[in-house]
């Protein structure tokens, strides 16, 4: 065995670039979090530390608008992610445990379609579609659109997980006279749970995050958080928007933590 002349894995400068990368990713978020604690009503000057804009979000003149928008966003995200996760779980079962079949490639193409079609194109197509069938726009149109584009995001972690589970458990159950249905609900689904939760969380965040499609299909007075924020920031970034953004940042970090913890229990089991 020859002695290595250098550490073959590390390259000079890569650490610095990684730190730069993290700096670029975090600087804007940190700046916004810091400025959300600014006492001044103007974003241009720093007038000392204060929580007034957090109070303003809940009690200020725009609070009703943001509360409604937040409720809409969360209701839509919960329903859309749930339905998309259910659909994706069934589809993944067919794709991973359904043998080889002719429509398999086509089905996979259809499922990943929302990932391939640029968002603006989906938005325009959905608008035209609802318009041509005379579907009144409101919460329901947003919900339907969200369910559709959340499916692939739920599907990916679920099918990945299912491919990682030996089907010997289900075979064993069936050998013990369990029906297919029982094998599915009693064996496969519980084993699938971490994947299903990951899929749900991903779909949930994707729905919560969506601006472009929602903006195209929303009806009168129906705002979600992104459209409400977009409307507000178009007229200039105000401190209360920074407070909302910071809270959403905190919420997102919480979600990632949950998803991380779920995946960790998965490894230990």
């Amino acid at each position: 065995m020859t002695r290595q002349r250098y550490d073959i894995k590390s390259y000079p400068g890569f650490l610095q670039i990684t730190l730069l990368c993290l700096f670029v990713l975090y600087a804007p978020l940190i700046v916004v979090a810091v400025y959300s604690l600014n006492a001044s009503a103007s974003i241009a000057v720093w007038e000392g530390f204060s929580f007034r804009w957090y109070v303003d979000v809940f009690t200020g003149p725009e609070s009703a608008k943001f509360k409604t928008a937040a409720r809409n966003s969360f209701v839509i995200a919960i329903i859309a992610a749930s339905v998309a996760t259910a659909i994706a779980t069934l589809a993944a079962t067919a794709m991973v445990r359904g043998g080889k079949f002719r429509l398999r490639a086509w089905s996979f193409g259809l499922i990943s379609l929302p990932l391939m079609v640029p968002e603006i194109v989906t938005a325009v197509a959905t608008l035209i579609f609802f318009n041509s069938i005379g579907f009144d726009r409101g919460l329901l149109t947003i919900l339907l659109a969200h369910i559709a584009f959340c499916i692939p995001f739920a599907y990916l972690p679920i099918s990945a997980r299912m491919q990682g589970i030996e089907d010997s458990y289900e075979q064993a159950a069936q050998d013990l006279y369990a029906t297919k249905r029982q094998a599915f609900t009693k064996i496969l689904l519980p084993l699938m749970l971490p994947g299903i939760i990951s899929g749900f969380l991903l779909a949930f965040i994707i729905s919560l995050d969506d601006f472009i499609i929602t903006n195209f299909v929303k009806g009168a007075g129906v705002e979600t958080l992104p459209t409400a924020i977009f409307g507000a920031v178009k007229q200039g970034i105000k401190p209360n928007i920074m407070a909302i953004s910071t809270m959403l940042l905190g919420f997102s970090v919480l979600m990632v933590l949950i998803s991380y913890l779920v995946s960790r229990t998965d490894k230990t089991s």
Partner: peptide, 27 residues
């Protein structure tokens, strides 16, 4: 893990139907 197996071969069309329907109509 294992690759594609055929445990639910008979039910696969029914299992895929919601996905086909939703994505076919909405996308």
């Amino acid at each position: 893990g294992n690759a594609v197996t055929d445990t639910y071969k008979e039910a696969r069309n029914w299992l895929l139907l919601p996905a086909w329907g939703t994505l076919g109509i909405m996308v």
